Simulated assay, not measured.
Amino acid sequence: MMNRDDMLALLQELILCHAPPGDEAEIEAVIMREFEATGAEVWQDGATNIYAHLPGDGPKVMIAAHKDELGMIVTDVREDGRLGVQNIGGSMAWKYGEGPVDILAGNGEVVRAILSVGSTHTKTGPVAALKENKALTWDLVTLFTGMTPEELDAKGIYPGTRAVVARERKHIQHIGDYIASYALDDRMGLVSVIAGLREMAGRSHDADLYFVATTSEEIGLIGAQRAAHLLEPEIAIALDTSPVAHGTPLVLDERPVIWYGEAAYNNKADCDKLLHLARELGFGAQPVVYNGAASDAGGIKRAGLASRTMAFGYARDNSHGYEIAHRDSIVNVTRLLLRYLEQLG
């Protein structure tokens, strides 16, 4: 199995790839490279999900992690060249703050802009209200581009164009046993999918395995539902970062988080099995029932597209912002995935 240093190096490469929902080409190139290197049968569907198939005669299993990340979508181009934006995928302006962002222009360029709120030296207007009791919402920010509307149009920047946090803000910070960055969600899951595929490609197995990098999870679990519709798996597994959220018993540590409840209630027997296997492996796990989170597995279960579903992943703080996770969780989740697949035969 990949060691932790190799996993973290791959994680950094994936994080630096921009992939807001619907504009995921940068990260797709890395995923295709990694999937094809295993010798598996690899293809991409019309929705842009990417598949790697390791055939077997046993139960059909879909193992998924999503490749999209939170971002912004341009809503209007103003006379001074500033861009109005709104969230795509649940991003919040106050999680980003003022600073550099990258616009993915239609001509293929990555164009620099500054997420701007405005000067604080005033007692009137929306910025004054922000100093007192108003939340920072997307209608109060713009992207400063330093270009005219005509220049922006020539680059292919118009309503519908995507933007994300600037690449230099996406370098992993190492703080003791912890890592922190934007877009740990769900690059950590992709690392485990790739590491799991590599390992299972070199082993004998009975299960019919489909490793899938899904699209558009952040805007409604769309890609996973399409993939499950096409594959018709008996078992669907989602690997995803797991919010250490208010009202849950979760702790920010190296133990995998088992999602018993989320967008739907995942299969209890399989979640129990994961909990048991994690204890056998020596690191244990944290069970959780979420009331404000959803994974690809929950979306598949809710749509009736698999008989059995489960989700598990990496405890993370600061969800949908500058996220923090324990560095060993990426190893432990991968080990748990492999142990679960092994016991299928």
Rank of each mutant, 00 (worst) to 15 (best):
Ile157Phe: 08
Asp296Lys: 06
Leu344Glu: 13
Glu199Val: 05
Leu239Glu: 03
Arg167Trp: 00
Ile172Thr: 12
Gly71Trp: 02
Thr215Tyr: 01
Thr75Cys: 04
Asp317Trp: 09
Ala264Asp: 13
Gly46Cys: 06
Arg339Ser: 09
Asn332Ser: 06
Leu338Ala: 08
Cys271Leu: 09
Phe312Tyr: 09
Leu250Pro: 01
Val193Thr: 09
Thr75Trp: 04
Lys155Trp: 02
His53Cys: 07
Arg339Cys: 00
Thr145Ile: 08
Val77Phe: 05
His276Phe: 05
Tyr96Arg: 10
Lys60Val: 12
Leu231Ile: 14
Ile63Tyr: 02
Leu274Asn: 06
Ala29His: 11
Asp76Thr: 10
Ile88Thr: 11
Gly156Thr: 08
Val127Trp: 08
Phe312Val: 02
Ile219Gln: 04
Leu130Glu: 06
Gly160Asp: 10
Asp57Glu: 15
Ala297Met: 10
Leu281Tyr: 06
Gly220Tyr: 09
Leu8Gln: 08
Pro55His: 14
Tyr260Lys: 14
His246Val: 12
Glu150Arg: 13
Gln225Arg: 15
Arg187Thr: 04
Ser295Phe: 03
Ala297Gly: 08
Gly118Ser: 12
Ala303Pro: 00
His66Gly: 06
Glu323Leu: 03
Val288Ile: 10
Ile157Pro: 02
Ser181Tyr: 03
Asp153Met: 11
Ala201Lys: 08
Lys123Thr: 13
Asp317Ser: 14
Arg33Ile: 01
Leu231Lys: 04
Tyr51Met: 06
Ala113Pro: 00
Tyr182Leu: 07
His66Met: 08
Val244Gln: 05
Phe211Lys: 05
Ile179Trp: 02
Asp317Lys: 14
Asn49His: 08
Asp177Lys: 13
Pro20Asp: 11
Lys67Val: 01
Leu136Asn: 07
Arg33Pro: 00
His174Trp: 11
Leu130Gly: 04
Ala285Arg: 05
Leu143Asn: 07
His18Pro: 02
Gln173Lys: 15
Ala19Lys: 01
Asp186Ile: 04
Glu217Asn: 09
Gln173Ala: 14
Arg255Met: 06
Ala37His: 07
Ala154Tyr: 04
Glu218Val: 02
Ala166Met: 06
Asp6Thr: 13
Ile175Arg: 13
Val333Asn: 03
Ala135Thr: 09
Ser192Ile: 03
Tyr182Trp: 13
Leu197Trp: 02
Lys95Asp: 01
Asn87Val: 03
Tyr265Met: 11
Gly22Thr: 07
Trp138Tyr: 12
Asp139Gln: 12
Phe144Gly: 01
Thr120Gln: 14
Arg279Tyr: 01
Phe144Gln: 14
Tyr290Ile: 05
Asp328Tyr: 08
Asp139Arg: 13
Met200Asn: 04
Gly99Lys: 11
Ala227Asp: 03
Trp138Leu: 07
Ala315Arg: 02
